[in-house]
């Protein structure tokens, strides 16, 4: 059990999201970096879909009310009772401990706890939606109960936390499947050649980008269903990648869809950092996603 002293920049409970409700206008929410989220659970031998705390830029500060064990992704160290502790493996906490996560390496991080975090379920999930629903992000004073911690002692694991990321000029390359309205784009080759900057007003609804403006005669489309990773281009020529708390319908040009395997890179990417885009077929993207899920569920990330 923990009590939040400071929630950090934006911390919320997330699991793998809600299914079946997109038709109501409710997007799935859930962890933006599914890889880190699942691996943080794996470090504690939890079911990989257990809810975690998702952190943004600065993590929370909390007090431990009952002994727990945590796994932290997104930063290499935290402060435990004032002393620096590595997050390379899980961390055992005792009643009365004070934890300060501090600044993350990049934009997102995760805290998993051994056992299952207790919080309200809405429409089948504990995931908090930043714009909707009656469940809210972490606030000062919130008490989070944890059920069913592993009685048997956990085997210490130093995990390789980061996947191999394809880079170009030192910046990550994000793979994109061509979208329904891509034929309207006059300078698609520029999109796949020039760098784009992650804008500071990016959030759980969308990762906003700036760079070479996308040119098209018409940016409006008849309102249609959106999807996770959809790249929309608005009248100002700036693309944006729709993420977990997106609006479920949209009226803008659909340039493409970010491959699922690369969504974790976007979720973590530092604000104002650069990325490149590369085209990929749906078939290849599917194979990569399959491969990555097998790695997460298997032994690839283990020592």
């Amino acid at each position: 059990m923990i009590r939040i002293i400071k929630p950090g920049m934006y911390s919320s409970i997330q699991d793998l999201g809600r299914t079946g409700v997109e038709k109501f206008g409710q997007s799935e929410s859930g962890a933006m970096n599914f890889r880190a989220m699942m691996l943080s659970n794996k470090m504690l031998d939890n079911p990989l879909s257990n809810p975690v705390i998702e952190m943004t830029i600065v993590g929370p500060e909390f007090e431990v009310l009952k002994d727990i064990t945590i796994a932290v992704f997104g930063t290499e160290k935290i402060r435990l009772n004032g002393s620096i502790v590595s997050t390379a493996s899980f961390i055992e906490l005792k009643e009365g401990d004070h934890v300060k996560v501090g600044r993350l390496l990049d934009t997102r991080g995760y805290i998993a706890v051994d056992g299952r975090m207790n919080s309200n379920h809405i429409l089948g999930s504990q995931s908090v939606h930043s714009q909707l629903l009656d469940i809210h992000p972490l606030r000062k004073g919130d008490v989070i109960k944890i059920d069913g911690a592993n009685e048997a002692s956990l085997e210490k694991k130093i995990m390789s936390k980061y996947p191999t990321v394809k880079t170009y000029k030192g910046k990550p390359v994000i793979r994109v499947m061509i979208g329904e309205d891509a034929e309207r784009v006059k300078n698609l080759d520029s999109f796949f050649k020039e760098s784009y900057t992650i804008q500071s007003d990016s959030n759980r609804m969308a990762i906003k980008l700036s760079g070479t403006k996308i040119e098209a005669d018409e940016y409006d489309i008849v309102s249609d269903v959106t999807r996770l990773g959809l790249i929309q281009v608005t009248k100002d020529g700036n693309p944006m990648v729709l993420m977990n708390d997106r609006q479920t319908t949209g009226g803008y040009l659909r340039l493409g869809t970010v491959a699922k395997v690369d969504l974790p890179i976007l979720a973590d990417a530092r604000l104002e950092s650069l990325v490149y885009f590369e085209e990929i077929s749906i078939e290849d993207a599917r194979a990569l996603y399959n491969e990555e899920m097998e790695r997460i569920q298997g032994t690839y990330y283990l020592p």
Binding site: G25, S223, V225, Q247
Partner: peptide
Amino acid sequence: YMLGFLPGFMY
């Protein structure tokens, strides 16, 4: 015709 944009928003 469809729902979206916000939960319960009707087109």
